[in-house]
Computed example of a mutant assay.
Amino acid sequence: MKTPRARGRFRVPEEPYKINERITAREVRLVGDNVEPGVFEIGKARAMAEAQSLDLVEIAPTATPPVCKIVDYSKFKYEQKKKQKEIKAKAQKVVIKEIRFGPNTDDHDFDFKLKHAMNFLKEGSKVKAYVHFVGRTIVFKERGVDLLNRFSDALSEYGKVEMEPKLEGKRMTIILAPLPPKK
């Protein structure tokens, strides 16, 4: 009986920061809470970190000389991950709601879809409205442009046009973004 072979080798993720002996610069600028700021030779900086039982971490490798901090590396990594999570949580997620029309959409259907679009824009979502041309209805392109322009004009107090009506294949599309809240 054959034993399954490992498909790939496990790779250890590379550390994002250089620490202690991995720092190659001759001189470094030290910053931090428990150290006097200044430019020191790498040996002296490592000795200062070792004396405090902490790590020397290179936080700005592109600076001249590179900027280092004396901290507990595992705690430093944890705080960096925490900051990244906070930034990600604060980032706004853009939601795009789609509304479909035909080139011969009736007034009642238009009004019904217009109300939905108003609600979407009030919520803060973007609205992508499109006219789908089926078969020979592609000859009525001007009807599609008129319909989408009428749609954007009716929603002018709730949102602004982000992308003018544009024909892509059998779809003519317009995108509306919500207006910023009034103060």
Rank of each mutant, 00 (worst) to 15 (best):
E21K: 01
L114M: 14
A63E: 15
P181G: 06
E164G: 00
K82Q: 15
V139G: 00
F120L: 03
A129R: 02
T137K: 04
K90E: 09
K182A: 15
Y17T: 03
S125I: 00
K85L: 15
E36D: 11
K170N: 15
G43E: 13
A45S: 05
K122S: 14
R11T: 02
P165N: 13
F140I: 05
K183V: 11
H116V: 14
V134N: 06
K182M: 12
G124H: 07
I175A: 03
N20F: 02
K82A: 12
K126Y: 07
F133K: 04
I87W: 10
E98W: 02
R29W: 07
I23Y: 00
I23A: 12
R46P: 03
E123S: 09
P103H: 15
V131C: 06
G8E: 05
V57T: 13
D111C: 00
G38N: 09
D72A: 06
P165R: 05
D55Q: 08
L56C: 07
E36L: 09
K44E: 14
R7A: 11
L147Y: 08
K115W: 06
A129N: 07
K93M: 04
L147K: 10
K160M: 14
Y17W: 08
A89E: 14
I23T: 14
N20Q: 02
I138K: 08
N104R: 04
D107V: 15
S74T: 10
A154C: 04
G124P: 06
Y130C: 07
N34K: 00
E58T: 07
E162W: 06
R26F: 01
V35K: 06
F110V: 05
K115P: 02
K88V: 10
M118T: 10
E50P: 00
F10M: 08
K75V: 07
L114A: 11
K160T: 10
P37N: 12
T62F: 01
P16M: 05
E98H: 11
I138V: 13
V131P: 01
D33H: 13
I96S: 08
F10S: 13
A63S: 09
F151K: 06
Q84V: 08
K183I: 11
N119D: 14
K75I: 11
E15R: 12
A129F: 05
A45D: 05
T137W: 00
T173F: 09
V139I: 02
V67Y: 04
L121N: 05
A47H: 07
E123N: 12
P180Y: 07
K90V: 05
I59N: 02
K2V: 08
S74R: 11
L114Y: 05
P103N: 10
P61L: 01
V161C: 07
A45M: 01
S74L: 11
F76L: 10
A49H: 01
Y73D: 13
A63H: 04
S156M: 12
M163Q: 11
P65F: 00
E15S: 11
K128F: 00
A89L: 13
P16Q: 03
